[in-house]
Design a protein around this nucleic acid. Sequence first.
DNA 1: ACCATTCTGTGCGGTATACGAACAAATGTC
DNA 2: GACATTTGTTCGTATACCGCACAGAATGGT
Lengths: 251, 251
Amino acid sequence: MRETDFVSGFARGLKVIEAFGEAQPRLTIAEVSKVTNLDRATVRRSLLTLSELGYADYDGKFFTLTPKILRLGHAYLSATPLPALVQPYLDQLSEKAGQSASASVLDGTEVVYVARASQRRVISINLMPGSRLPAYCASMGRVLLAALPEAEAREILKRTELKANTPHTKTDPEELVGELRRVREQGYAVIDQELELGLCSIAVPLMNARGQVVAALNVGAPAAHVAASELAERYLPLLKETQGALRPLIQ
Amino acid sequence: MRETDFVSGFARGLKVIEAFGEAQPRLTIAEVSKVTNLDRATVRRSLLTLSELGYADYDGKFFTLTPKILRLGHAYLSATPLPALVQPYLDQLSEKAGQSASASVLDGTEVVYVARASQRRVISINLMPGSRLPAYCASMGRVLLAALPEAEAREILKRTELKANTPHTKTDPEELVGELRRVREQGYAVIDQELELGLCSIAVPLMNARGQVVAALNVGAPAAHVAASELAERYLPLLKETQGALRPLIQ
DNA sequence: ACCATTCTGTGCGGTATACGAACAAATGTC
DNA sequence: GACATTTGTTCGTATACCGCACAGAATGGT
C-alpha cells in the first residue's frame, strides 16, 4: 500500500469515536484531544462532523455519542452470520446450564463478545456484544489462543500487558504457553477467578465444517455457586453438545 | 458550523463502513462505490485505511469487516449508562414473563435495541443490541413516537417508508397519528403482527427521574402462544413494575 | 477581584487528499 | 480467441485539511 492510500482524516475520526469509553460518556474537545493525542482543532472538526452526521450530540460544551453510532458495529454483527447463528444455541445452552453463556472471537490481544445469553443472576462485570476482555486470562481467550500456532500465541502474549487481576491470575508467559498446550490437548479451558474474584468459567472452541476454529463458546458461573473443579463435569457435556450442533452449520 | 469544520474524508469513511449490511458481508471496491455513490478511488482509499487499522480484512478482492469495528459501537454501549442499568431488570422481566424482553431508543425513523434478554423460544427475527426496526410498526417505536410532540412524530412518519410488512400493518399516517394518541393516553402500545406474522408485543415508555421518556421497554411473544388481546392483561403489570423500578435510577 | 490556567474558536501557510480521467487488469460474452 | 464490460490502480492538479499560533471566553484558586 502506498503512503497516499491512507486517509488520515478518517483514521483520526475513528480514534475520536473510540475515545468515548467506559467512564467517559460526555467529553469535551480538550478531553478527547488528550486521550487521542490529536490536535484540538482536529478533534473539534471530527466531533463537529460526527455531530453534523447525527452520530454525536453537542450541547456547546460536551459531546455524547448517539445510538446512530451503533450502525457501525451493527454493520459487522449483521454482516457476519456467526452471531445470529449461535444466538439461539446460546440461549438454549444458557437455560440448560442455568448460567450465562457467551460466544466470542479474537481481536488482537482481546476477546470480543459477539453474542451472549445472560441469566438473571447478576455478575459484576456487565458484558454484551462488543465487550472486550484480555485473552490471556479469559476462558474463551485461552481456547482461541490455543487454536493458533504456538509462535503466534507467544507473539500475542508478548504484546499483552500481563497483569494480575487477582491473586489467581497466571501472568508468566511460559506458564501460559504450557497452559495453552493443555487446553489444546483437552479441548477446553477452565478459568478459576483469574479475571475477577468469585468468577469462574469454562470454554470450548467453535469450529466450522472444515475444522477451523472460528470462535469460542463459554459458560460462566459465580465461584460461590460452582467450584472451578466441578465446571467440566457440570457443563462440558452441554458445551460439547452445542459445539457439535453448530459445527456443520458454520460456513 | 463553518463549511471547513467538516471533515469529509471522515464522513465518507463512515459511509463506507455502513455499506456493509445484512446481505453484504463481503464487498469489493466497486460494490461499495455503487452503494455509497462515492468515487472508486475514494472508496479504495477508505477501505485500505480500514484494513491498515485492522477494522477490515482484504484478500486482494473482497473486503470484510473485522470484530474490531465493534469497538466503535461499544464506545456508545459502554459510555451510556442505560444499557448496563436496564439489563438486569430486563433479565428479570424476561424470566417472569417467560418471553423475550428488550429496551430500545429512537434513532431517526427507527428503534435501536440497546439491551435484550431473550428466551429459549426462537423467533425468526434475530435481534441484538444495535439491531434496528422501523418505528411505525414496532411496539417500542409507537411508544417512543407517542412521547414526541405530535408535529415531530408526524415529521418522522413522513420520512418513513410506510410499507405493509403483513396484512395487519397500519400504514395510513393519519391512522398512525391516532394510534399514537391512544398510546399516549393509555401509557402502552400493543402491536399485533404488524411487523411479522405470528409476532406480537407490548411496550411501555421508560422515564427518567424527571419524567422524560428516554427509552422503551417491551415484551414480545409468538401470537400462537399469546393472543394480542391478552398481552396487556398478562404482561402490563410486569412492565409497569419494571418501569417504576427503573424510573428513579435513570439519570 | 485578581491572576493563572484551561478551554474554545479562528485565521493562515504548507501539505496531504479527493477528484476525474486515463490506464491496466480481470472478467464475462459470443 | 477477440471484443465488450467491469474492476482495480495510477497520476496530475485543484483544493480541503492539519497543525500551529493567537484571541477571547470560561473556570478555578487565593
